[in-house]
């Protein structure tokens, strides 16, 4: 697995970008785990990355979950609108 998978991580791949990045993550995501993500973001330590955690949300279900839909919509809309 060395040589491929071990380089496929955000701490390496996003190291050289300064684009504004919004990351949305559920704390109960069992497929792409939150602790893997926070470790990658900590290594990056970059100002251009904003992380929003949704407590209790699962994998790619943030917008579908009525508990989070409004918050999600607001975060995404504000992030996109901040460009113009």
């Amino acid at each position: 697995m060395s040589g491929f998978a071990d380089k496929m991580k955000l701490s390496i791949l996003l190291k050289n970008t300064n684009l504004p990045i919004l990351i949305l993550q559920g704390s109960s995501d069992h497929q792409t785990k939150m602790d893997f993500l926070t470790e990658e973001i900590d290594v990056l330590g970059k100002q251009n990355i904003a992380l929003e955690i949704f407590n209790g949300a699962s994998h790619v279900k943030l917008y579908q979950d009525d508990n989070f839909k409004e918050q999600y919509e607001l975060l995404v809309s504000e992030f996109i609108r901040s460009k113009k």
Partner: peptide, 10 residues
């Protein structure tokens, strides 16, 4: 801009 929802991170 980039938005990453539930990203595969590692």
């Amino acid at each position: 801009k980039i938005i990453l929802d539930s990203p595969l991170s590692n």
